[in-house]
Design a protein around this nucleic acid. Sequence first.
DNA 1: ATGGTCGGTATCCGA
Length: 278
Amino acid sequence: MAIKRTGAAAGAAGLRIATWNINSLRLRGGLLNALVKELRPDILCLQETKVPDDLFPLEAVQAAGFPHMLFRGMKAYNGVAILSRLPITPVDDTPDWCARGDCRHLAVRVAVPSGALTVHNFYVPAGGDVPDPKLNDKFAHKLQFIREMTEFFGREPPRRSVLLGDLNIAPLEHDVWSHRQLLDVVSHTPVETEALLTLQKGGFHDAVRHFVAEGEKLYTWWSYRNRDWRASDRGRRLDHAWVSDDLASSLLRHAILKDARDWQPASDHVPVCVEISV
DNA sequence: ATGGTCGGTATCCGA
């Protein structure tokens, strides 16, 4: 018997997709259970797994309720994974971003009642400390990465697609604790925020700002270097969930799991989740 | 103006 889906008005369940920079999957794999308890995502995109594929903790992921998974890791750095309750199909013809082979992107297709959806999981380079591509190769890499994303999605407008991840850029004035003080800090410089918004305008809709007014402060990351992250509240919104424009009207709700910043051992990022009527 | 703390892995690099 088919389950009738009647949309947001009836409070119908949709597809929940979450993203979390876990900052070591092996160290924090046990926290996946807490995330599942709080958010119940159908699909979870992880960044900074920091685990080579041959050491991927399959059992911890399966125990958290994700029988389907795709992962791409390397020693010590980077690493992304997509964990799913539903069967997923890898999208194989994706670029080797900046020709570095450094495990910053995965894409999958998932079948839902209305058809197929594509899910992109990105971990954009942080960019180092000096916001000048001539002086800082890491910043040049970051800008090049965003340019290549813009080219990739510019070839044809994205459709029935969700783009999530740690984009390492806080694009809006109220995505940082002090717009004025962060204008020359990597993650909020005009060259980055303009590049990210150009990418977004190529067919994506910010699924979190869809629900939270632009004038309201909104963060997903708080530095480890503050004695009391909650009291100082010097956050930035580095983690994002976007949907292609054709899915904007299907958005049902969002969640930013701020309390996860106190989970032990804590990641400096917290999970972000969106739910889409499918 | 400066330095502050993490994780992986090695006594430093990246964030």
